[in-house]
């Protein structure tokens, strides 16, 4: 082959010249910049407002950074802010939410993973019918089932208790989680399951010794999904608990929207951030897994 050196080539060669500031790029990055700012702005406003004193808020505008940073609103939001009834801030709600979220997440994941495993590997007659009902159940507006569940919980003496709310979260988390686990277990190689059966392992043996160790990522996805969902719940909290055990979202709403007294916007925003802190942390830490969780919520059976 003849080797010509580059200098001998004439006319267009190499990459097509592109201006870094082409109209396309300006439009593309310009739009994305504006969009990003728009989405980020509320978080920024929350933070700066929560760090200002009330006099500064009354004078300045909500976007200006605090001249004098104060953490007093955060302290007040956490320990002293008043809901309609009491004045002990968000702390009670926070601990209630912790006491609701932890058992709900564990219970719902345990039940749904075993369910999903039974559906994926131990198909029995009628299993698919129940599963279909379960999936359709995910689309039924909660309002339709609110009152029947009140009655059921009352019958077993758990209405108003945290245990009752844990059961409710487990029930409503079941469709999506079962789907998540069923799909995941179905995607595992079936030979593995068959080999274990040939080796004489039973239902629980296979579940604990093979399925669970192989499925840590999906358990993480489920956990992210559930912690976020349950922490953010408002409706079930209001309906199924008493004021002294309201979760954080409900306390937050009561603090901010209570009509008594002077509005302390900085305290309100501090309270709002504190409430959003748990899911935000999970979101920023988990990144791709969070996205996988919501994508899983969107996949069809």
């Amino acid at each position: 082959m003849v080797d010509i050196t580059s200098s001998q080539l004439s006319g267009p060669q190499g990459p097509k010249p592109r201006k870094a500031l082409s109209r396309r790029n300006i439009l593309l990055y310009g739009t994305l910049f504006v969009v990003t700012v728009y989405y980020a702005l509320p978080l920024y406003v929350m933070i700066v407002t929560s760090l200002k004193g009330m006099p500064e808020i009354r004078l300045g505008n909500i976007f200006s950074p605090p001249v004098e940073v104060t953490f007093e609103p955060w302290v007040k939001a956490w320990a002293q802010a008043c809901t309609g009834l009491t004045c002990d801030g968000l702390s009670t709600g926070f601990w209630n939410s912790v006491r609701i979220t932890i058992p709900s997440v564990i219970l719902s994941i345990v039940i749904a993973s075993v369910n999903g495993y039974a559906l994926a590997n131990w198909k029995f007659k009628g299993a698919d019918a129940f599963f279909t009902i379960l999936i359709f159940g995910a689309f039924i507006p909660y309002q339709v089932m609110l009152y029947p569940i009140v009655i059921m919980l009352r019958e077993i003496g758990l209405y108003g208790s945290l245990t009752g709310l844990v059961i409710v979260h487990t029930i409503f988390g079941m469709p999506i989680l079962t789907l998540l686990f069923r799909n995941y277990f179905t995607s595992l190689p079936e030979e593995l399951f068959k080999a274990a059966r040939v080796d004489g392992a039973g239902f629980w043996g296979i579940y604990f010794r093979i399925m669970v160790p192989m499925s840590l990522p999906i358990f993480t996805v489920a956990m992210i999904l559930q912690v976020t969902g349950i922490w953010n719940d408002f409706l079930f909290g209001v309906v199924y608990t008493r004021p002294e055990s309201y979760p954080m979202t409900v306390s937050l709403n009561n603090i901010v929207n209570s009509t008594q007294g002077v509005k302390e916007y900085n305290v309100n925003m501090a309270a709002t951030i504190i409430t959003g802190l748990v899911p935000l942390t999970i979101y920023f830490v988990s990144g791709k897994l969070f996205v996988r969780g919501i994508a899983a919520g969107a996949v069809k059976g």
Binding site: L32, V35, T36, Y39, A40, L41, P42, L43, V45, M46, T49, I57, R58, N61, I62, T228, W231, N232, D233, F234, T249, L252, N253, V256, Y265, N268, M269, T272, T275, G276, P279, L280, I282, Y283, F284, G287, F290, V291, I294
Partner: peptide
């Protein structure tokens, strides 16, 4: 980065969302 910023509101509860926008749309200060 851009994807993370656009999606983070989805991690927040409706209560938090509602309260932030109540504040931003407040005619007196917003």
């Amino acid at each position: 980065t851009i994807r993370t910023v656009i999606l983070y509101p989805y991690a927040l509860s409706f209560v938090v969302t509602g309260l932030v926008w109540q504040w931003i749309l407040n005619p007196e200060f917003g």
